[in-house]
Simulated assay, not measured.
Amino acid sequence: MALRGVGVAVKTLASRTFTHPRALSASSSSSSRCRFQIRSMAGSATSELKKIQIQRDDITFDAYVVGKEGAPGIVVLQEWWGVDYEVKNHALKISQMDPGFKALIPDLYRGKVGLDVAEAQHLMDGLDWQGAVKDIRASVSWLKANGSQKVGVTGFCMGGALSIASSVLIPEVDAVVAFYGVPSSELADPAQAKAPVQAHFGELDNFVGFSDVTAAKSLEERLKSSGIPYEVHIYPGNGHAFLNTSPEAVKRRKGMGLTDEDSAAVELAWSRFQSWMSRYLRA
């Protein structure tokens, strides 16, 4: 089964079978709906993030912002888990990068967070992808209306795919950095990208058609034909979500069969992120 708007297949990770967005069977999806609960997760970064509300069309949604007033803005997009501790950690890290960015996380799930694969799957199943793009555009507009002359978009996994889609669908975006995620052609064709795109993938990522090496190389070919500046980086020996390094995230990754830990690759990826965003958001 394919994920509408992203597109991924069932894959085996470390001798254990997992599915990624929209690839669960009907029976397992049904069971997740029966037991799913809305939960919140408070991480160490939570207290440093300011909760705001953003309006788009006739909808108001929550977002979290941190960073220097007047600094270039970066919209930070969640993984399929939701706005949890790790995406907040990422936003805080981005805000503290020299010489400073203003990071904003739109809550695409409207307060819901999945604590296991089945819950995350259920949340992804219910996501309105076109609505998510509208949320991202409204977030970019909010940052530009509140002191950020230029605004980039970054994201992880599901958010990575949406980041690339934003380079195609949101003219106001000035730069994109995507981590391990590629949108399906139904959502956005990277060959039509209008903002510079940098993308990062793990060599051992097994989410076929979404963030594996084949997907990364296909993305590179599409970006090449777009004519915009781009970089696609593949990290040897690393799997999916390799940037998630907090103790909680490492435990969660290991529970999914993702046992790689590579601090040098993490440092390199963040360094490339910083260089890319600084180049295109401070010019």
Score class of each variant (00 low, 15 high):
51 K>P: 06
167 S>D: 00
51 K>L: 06
12 T>A: 05
154 T>A: 09
255 G>Y: 14
77 L>F: 04
244 N>Y: 09
69 E>T: 05
48 E>R: 11
15 S>F: 08
228 I>Y: 05
48 E>N: 13
240 H>M: 03
250 V>M: 09
52 I>A: 03
24 L>P: 04
102 K>F: 02
263 S>D: 10
264 A>C: 08
161 A>S: 14
79 E>K: 07
50 K>S: 09
107 D>T: 03
260 D>V: 02
65 V>G: 01
75 V>S: 05
267 E>K: 13
265 A>Q: 07
226 S>A: 12
251 K>V: 11
20 H>E: 15
250 V>W: 08
215 A>C: 04
200 H>K: 12
250 V>H: 03
99 P>N: 07
78 Q>I: 06
42 A>Y: 13
66 V>T: 05
179 F>H: 12
48 E>Y: 09
179 F>Y: 15
133 V>I: 11
18 F>I: 12
45 A>T: 08
134 K>A: 12
275 S>E: 14
35 R>Y: 05
167 S>V: 03
68 K>D: 02
108 L>F: 04
44 S>Y: 12
221 E>R: 14
69 E>Y: 08
39 R>N: 07
119 E>V: 03
218 S>D: 14
184 S>L: 00
178 A>F: 06
245 T>R: 06
147 G>W: 00
267 E>T: 14
218 S>R: 15
231 E>L: 13
254 K>Y: 00
82 G>I: 01
191 A>I: 02
133 V>D: 02
121 Q>R: 15
211 S>F: 15
145 A>E: 11
20 H>L: 13
113 V>M: 07
32 S>T: 15
228 I>K: 13
166 S>H: 01
128 D>C: 04
42 A>M: 10
178 A>Q: 05
280 Y>D: 07
192 Q>N: 12
129 W>P: 02
174 D>M: 06
242 F>K: 07
220 E>A: 15
154 T>I: 11
216 A>T: 13
61 F>K: 00
85 Y>N: 04
228 I>P: 06
235 Y>N: 11
256 M>F: 10
141 S>C: 11
172 E>T: 09
133 V>F: 01
29 S>T: 11
10 V>Y: 00
116 D>F: 13
216 A>L: 10
76 V>Y: 03
170 I>E: 01
252 R>I: 15
49 L>A: 13
87 V>S: 04
26 A>C: 12
156 F>I: 12
255 G>L: 08
61 F>D: 00
23 A>I: 01
279 R>H: 15
123 L>A: 14
196 P>K: 10
276 W>E: 06
125 D>E: 15
62 D>N: 07
207 F>H: 07
44 S>W: 10
211 S>E: 10
228 I>N: 05
53 Q>F: 07
4 R>L: 13
221 E>S: 15
273 F>M: 10
83 V>L: 03
217 K>I: 03
32 S>F: 06
169 L>S: 01
62 D>Q: 06
267 E>L: 11
271 S>K: 09
157 C>D: 03
73 G>P: 05
204 L>Y: 07
223 L>T: 11
175 A>P: 08
226 S>M: 04
37 Q>K: 12
233 H>F: 09
8 V>M: 14
260 D>I: 00
261 E>M: 03
64 Y>L: 01
203 E>F: 09
46 T>D: 14
241 A>H: 12
100 G>M: 05
267 E>Q: 14
144 K>H: 11
